[in-house]
Amino acid sequence: MNDAIIQINSPLLTIERLSIAYEPGKYAVQDVNAGIKKNSITAIMGPSGCGKSTLLRAINRMHELYPNTEVVGKIFLDNENIFEISAIELRRKIGMVFQRPNPFPTMSIYDNVIAGYKLNGKKLKRSVKDEIVEKSLKEVALWEEVKDALFKRGTFLSGGQQQRLCVARALAYKPEIILMDEPTSALDPIATTKIEDLLVELKKDYTIILVTHNMSQAARISDYSMFMYLGELIEYGKTKNIFSNPVDKRTEAYLTGKFG
C-alpha cells in the first residue's frame, strides 16, 4: 500500500485503475485509484497539464463526446460501475460547473435554472418549476439579486453571478455529486470568495469534486486534496495533513512553490 494515498472508508465514488489517453499510447491520466468521501469537498490540484481536468471529466463521461479519447478502468457510484449505465442517466446524477461561466445565451435566467428538466423532456407544472427555480437560486445566494429579472437573459449578469447561475443550473436536477472544473479561474477575487463560501455551504447536501490550480483555494475550502503530476496521482489525503506534512517530495516541492 502506498502511504501517500489515503483509503476512504465507505466512499460515495470509487475510481479504480483509471487511465485516459487522448492519443493511442499517450496517457494524460495513468492508473489512478481513489475514493471520494460523501458530503465533502475533494480538491484536485497540480500544475497545468497534469491531468486533473481530464480525471474530472471522466467522472461524468464527458470524454465520450470526443471519440478519439480512450478511457480504461472503472468508476463506481453507489456500487454501480458508471461505464455500465447510460451516460444520460449518469450525467443526471452528476452535475458539472465549468471553467468559464456558460449560461445558455438564448435562455432566460429562469429557463437556465430548469434547463436540466427541459433538456430531459420532463414536463413540470408551473408551480413546481417556480419552486425549483426559487430554491436553486436561493441555494447559490442569487435569488435576491435576480428575482425581479428572472425572465431576462442570463448573459446580462456579471461573471460571478453567471457562474452562480451555472451552479444553480447544476443543482436544480438534484445531483449526488457536483464536478467543478476551476470554477473561479475566470472570476475576480470578490466573486471567487462568494463561490468558495457557497461551496462550503453546499457540501451539506452534495459531494463536491473541485479541480483547482490555486493551492490556497484548495487549502481554504477542501476537506481532502489530491495532488497530480504528469498524469499520476502522487498524493491524496486530508487537506490539512497534505499542506502541513506532505509525504511525497514532489507534493512538497509543488506546495512550496518550487514548480507549477
Partner: peptide, 18 residues
C-alpha cells in the same frame, strides 16, 4: 461553443436535445 454543448450534455441531454 463547445462549452455550451458540454453544459447541456452534463445535464443529461441527448445529442438530439443538444
Amino acid at each position: 461553443p463547445d462549452e455550451l454543448k458540454e453544459a447541456a450534455y452534463s445535464l443529461g441531454a441527448t445529442r438530439r436535445e443538444v
